[in-house]
Structure formats: structure tokens, C-alpha cells
Nucleic acid binder design. Structure first.
Lengths: 207, 207, 207, 207
DNA sequence: GATGAATGAGGATTCATTCAT
DNA sequence: AATGAATGAATCCTCATTCAT
């Protein structure tokens, strides 16, 4: 950010490279050597910063997921009665700046790897519960049975994260960069509109 | 299915085992040896049926994706004016019988690998175009601008395929098998309801 | 030879293909599968004709070397006093019809394989001895010490067999097919002239 | 050679071992594992020094052939009018110190492999041309037609290189080590005498 | 911190060979 | 006599990791 930002410390450069490669190729598909070479480093040097490939992978996951959850938590904490509108914007904004993260999460989610359990229980479950309670407090969503709330939340996750995670496919299908700033703004608008409709708010109010 | 169904030919047993393992662990994460051992075969024998691991992977993909698209095509061809309701049912039914397939597709989609291009252009794109023209013919969807149709279709794909592909994560989060027959039926119902709401049909009719 | 020569029996077609491939790539460099495919046969079928790859190799060697030695023996037996002139012609003629053989022999000779010992002792040594006795009987070669006779014979072998065995290299260097009939005739002439000079025959006589 | 010569660097030890094994068994017949074990190294370690078996093979070829050609070039450059006498000595001396090289070259020459083309065009052809011009300048060789010069040169190559390359066979046939220092000296003498005779020098002078 | 060299385990694939059909 | 399928042993090579420098 400063005029002459100092070169990122090696540890961070490793995390950056690893995040991209893990997101693209998954854990098994990424060679330590490739990460190192991306950083301009000898593979052995990498072990001065992380004790193992797995530890690096977990650090990447941690570095990506923690701020995401904090952002979400902060948002819901600030205004517990919100109808999901604000959170969409915040989430989309955050993900725009870490576009690899959803792919990383999807890799884990699809393969059902070891970290998934922690990812699910420690990180995602609390969030889902929070969302559930928001829905329950919110009379707007009255047209949906309470048994359907989990499905609503799942759907909502699919829509937001899916847009990022599936970007390679979508960009190919629609012949445009679905992660461009313009398209992300459009997607945000779309999701807000969709949410309003789905939650059946007749008068969205000062939105 | 018959009383004494003959043992599946080796080639099919290989494809079956490979489909599961590839879906679980991805291409890079799956060892040929593991596939072979799952089939009760020497790794070398596998090469009597497929010239390489990659060729096997492609055969798995092909075998899974082709019938899926045919089902979709047949459905839309039979009743071009449908509002997506019937297609949801058909799709969910089909995927229930090949629950690994969406994971396979998501692996490819997230990775952005070589096969993705073909997957996207040859298989998915025509389908999306078909869906687009259905939407355009359908006055019900009038509350959505034509520019938003692609987003609607993407959203719809995320919801259907995401439910299957992310099953490992969702099952962990919601503490139940999200792919059980019961849950799939519920999800189908949910999607139909959602579709109706989203496409703004005032009088959904006898559905 | 007949107007409609019957198709060569499989066994011979295998030997033919093997001879070429072994000559080109050596024993280790030739896969049974390649020989079979050259014959248009399944590798397994090949084992109906030869008990093993090694046995096939030895059969190829035997089929090539035996007639060669017989020709040589017959020639020296017919006219023990000849000065090498006739034998050059006979040998070159024979090799022109089995041009792969010298390469096969060279592969063995260079690598010093197991068969080399038999090749050397059983086949080549008697011949060399015969040649030695011819030289000893021949007063023409008087300018060479008897200790040099083995060197003369070696040289002579190098010249004749080398021309065939090294054909790939020579053809590349001299930009022409050194095994063409024309070039072989020229080489034959050259060797006769060379022999005359080396053996120091003042008046070659009616040759 | 010094009192305490430092241990040869690993790379050179690999090249040494590879040279011997490749010469003995050819490229296809030599296992990377065998080279490594000869050096007392894990096969994987070998790949820290050479990117592939083929690259190692080419390095061996290069390391052997280049100095050979430099020696030849230097010799002919120093005394363009020489009659081949000096060059025989130089060549035999050099080959005595790298006795595996001719076998390596013969393997390639017989096989007609990929490297042969470069070997032939880049390395051997210039040398042959040089030899041709030497012959043309040399009135001694007047008894040979210019069209025969290439054959003379080929013959000469066969005699020198053949003696080394075919050593396993010749040693077996003549029951002695044809590469012993004594025998090489004898062969050198023989070749000089032969050259004089063949090139038709009437008075060989103080030889 | 960085690196070149080393390594055991494993990874895909090839190979010669066998056997039931 | 031919073949498809099976296999144990090798083959080349990659991988994550270690260690001395």
C-alpha cells in the first residue's frame, strides 16, 4: 500500500503461490517443487518455513478461511436482524479479493478429505447455525417451513461460493471472465434480487 | 437385476471402481494401483483395458456425462415449453443413480483442466443455450431481464449439482446423509418450489 | 521363386521381422510385442513358434550365421589356394542378400553378450584358422610376418563386415545408400584391389 | 595422478560408470539402477545430476566424442600434409585411453538411432571432408581414383575403430586381450605399414 | 535462510510370459 | 495356431523430505 511496499516476506510468498496451486490442482496434484519454483526457491528452503507439505496446506486453508469467517461473524454481529442483503455484499466483496479460496474449499468439500471435518464442524457449522437463528428470527421468511431453512442456507452457499469456485467452467461456457469486477457486481445484484424474491419480502424497504 | 446377473465384464468393473476413486480423490490423488486393487486386479492387467490412467479417467468422464446429457436433451426435446419443473425431477432422479458424477465434474470444473474445455464447449454449452431459449420463450420469467438469464441458469446448476458435489461437506455440517433417498426427495421438492418462486409464476397451477 | 509363391509360413515371417528389429535395436531394445505386431500377430501367438524371446533371438542368429559360414567353407574348400579374391566376391554377394546379418553380428560383438562366445569359438574361430592356413600356404603374402597374419585377417573382416554393419552411419555421412547394388559392386572392386596391394602381389595374374 | 587426488565429483563418476555400461550393454540394455548402483548411489540421486537416462546417455556420448574430434582436428591442423601416419598414432593413443568410446559409437552406428544423424553430420562428416582434401593434395595416393577416396577413408575408419569396437569378439577369437598395450602398439605398427602400402608410397623412408 | 545432493517410498507403465478359450 | 486377459518383475522417473554446508 505504501509508495514502495517492501517485498513480501518469503513465508507469505510461499503461501501465496501455494494457495493458487492448491486451488488449481488440489493437494495431491500440487508438488512441493512446483510451489518452490513459483516462489523462486529451492524446495528444501521451503522446509525452513513450513514443517511439511501438509502443514503448508493447512496454513493456506487457515489463512484463507479465518478472515472469511471473521468478516461474516462481524457482519452478522453488527446487525443481527439483517435479511441477508448486507451479508451478500460483504461476502462477495471479500471473495473478490481472495478468489482462489472458494476453489480451495470446494476441492476439500468434494473430495471429503481429512480437513473437511474440521472445516465443517469448527468453521462452517457455527456459521450455519447463526444463519439459522437469523432466519428463525426473521418473519419475512415465513413462507418457508422451518424444516426448509437448512436447504435455504445450503442453496445460498451454493450460489455464492459456487460462482467463484466454478469460475473456470462458467467462464468457458459463457465466454467471458465471470470473475471480472463488472460481472461480480452483476452477480451481487442478482443474488440480492434473488434473495428478496425467495424470502418473499413484499416490500424490501430502504434498500 | 436378473436373478443371476452375469458378473460385470472387467472393463466395467474397472470403470466403476475408478469412478468412485476419482470422485473421491481426484485424478492426481488416485493411484492406478488402488483402482486395480479395488477390482481385485493386478495393476498391469488394467492396461489391457485402458491404455493409460488418463484414458481411463476420460472414459469414466465420458461414461458418466454422456447419459446425463442425453437424459437432459430428451427431456427438453419432449416438452420444450416446460418451466423447468419436469427437468428438475428428471435430473435429480438421474443423479441419484450416479451420485459420484457431479463430484467428478466439480473436480474438473474447479481445476480448470484440459477436459474442462471440452466438457464446457461440447457438452454444457449446448445445454445452456437450450435452457436460454426455453427461458426466452417463457413469458413467466418476465420479471427477469434477458441479461439475467445466464445468471439464472448458472444459479440453477449450482443448486442441483452443488447438492450432490458438496455432499461430503453438507453431510458433515448437517449431521445427516444429504444423499439419502429421503433427503433427495426433499431437495427436489425444495428446488421446484424455489424455481416457481424465482420465475415469479403467480399461479403455479396444479403442481 | 515360383510364379505364385505361397505365403511364407508364420515361423519364417516371425524370423524375418525379428531379424530386422534385432539388427536395428539389439536384443534388449526389441520388444516381443513389436516383433509380433510387425508380423500382425498377437504376442502370445509368437510363443506357439518359439519358446522364448531368447530362443527366437538365437534362431535368428543361427538362421543368418550358418549359411554364411557354409558359403565361406564351401568356397575355401573348393579352391584352397585362392588368394582371397574369389572369397571377397562370394562374401559380398551373400551379404548383399542378408544385409541385416552383419549388424546383428556387430551388436553381439560390441556388447560382448553371451552368444558371442559361441559365435566366436564355434563359428568364427575355425574360419579364421582356415584363413590363417591359406595365408601360410600362400607365398604371395611373404612381405608380412607370420605374426601379422591375424591382424591381416581382422582387418579384412573389419572391411567387409564393417561396410554392411556401419551402413546407417556411412550412408548418412556420404549422403548415399552405401548398400545399393551399385555401391556394393564398387566396394567389392575396391576390396579386391586393396587385397592385391596389401598382399603385395606383383602380378595378379588372370584375375 | 597426484599423491592424493580428490575424489571425482559425483557427476563424473556417474558419467564414468554410464560410459562403461552403455558401451557394454547399449542404451536399452542398461538400467538406470545399475549405473546408480555402480556409483554407489540411489537411482533417484542420479536425477539430481541428469534429467533423464537419455540426457545422461547423450552426455556420455558428448564427453567421449568431443575430445576425440578435437584431437583429430588439432593433428590435421598442425600438419596438413601428413600422410596419415601421424594421425594413426594420435588416434590409437587417444582411443587406448577411452577404449569404450568406439563401442559406444558402433552401437549408435549400427542402430541408426537419432543421435547418429548428429554424430554423422556434425562430427564425422567434417572430419571425413578434411581427410578427403588431405588425400587430394597428396600426390602419393595417385594410384587411387578420386572416386575411391571415400572408400579409402571408410576402410581406414573400419580398421581403427573396428579394432576397438570389436575387441570383445576379437579377444575371444584370438585368445588374447586385443586391447592390451602391447597389442595396441602392434596394431598401430600394422596400420602404419598397411597405410604406406595402400597409399602406394614407393619408399616409405625411415619408418 | 538458502541450497545441492541424497534417499526411501511410491507412481505410472512396460515387459516377457502364461493360460484358458 | 491364435487370442484376450492376467501377472510378477522390472523400468524410468517423481515425490516429500533430510542433511551437511
Amino acid at each position: 500500500m505504501t509508495a514502495a511496499s517492501p517485498p513480501a516476506p518469503t513465508r507469505d510468498r510461499i503461501l501465496d503461490a501455494a494457495e493458487i496451486l492448491f486451488a488449481e490442482r488440489g493437494l495431491a496434484g500440487t508438488a512441493v517443487r512446483d510451489i518452490a519454483s513459483e516462489v523462486g526457491l529451492n524446495p528444501a528452503s521451503l522446509y525452513n518455513h513450513f514443517p511439511s507439505k501438509l502443514a503448508l496446506y493447512e496454513a493456506v486453508l487457515e489463512r484463507g478461511v479465518r478472515p472469511l469467517l471473521e468478516v461474516l461473524h462481524d457482519t452478522t454481529a453488527a446487525d443481527p436482524l439483517q435479511d441477508g442483503d448486507r451479508i451478500i455484499e460483504v461476502l462477495m466483496d471479500h471473495l473478490e479479493r481472495t478468489p482462489h479460496l472458494p476453489r480451495l474449499i470446494y476441492q476439500e468439500a468434494v473430495t471429503g478429505g481429512e480437513h473437511l471435518v474440521r472445516l465443517a464442524r469448527v468453521w462452517i457449522k457455527p456459521l450455519v447455525n447463526e444463519a439459522l437463528s437469523v432466519l428463525k428470527r426473521n418473519p419475512n421468511s415465513g413462507e418457508w417451513a422451518e424444516a426448509e431453512y437448512p436447504l435455504l442456507i445450503s442453496a445460498w452457499l451454493h450460489l455464492i461460493f459456487g460462482h467463484f469456485a466454478m469460475a473456470p467452467l462458467l467462464s468457458e461456457v459463457f465466454d467471458e471472465d465471470t470473475l471480472s469486477h463488472e460481472n461480480l457486481a452483476r452477480q451481487t445484484q442478482f443474488l440480492r434480487k434473488l434473495t428478496l424474491r425467495v424470502l418473499g419480502v413484499s416490500n424490501p424497504g430502504p434498500q
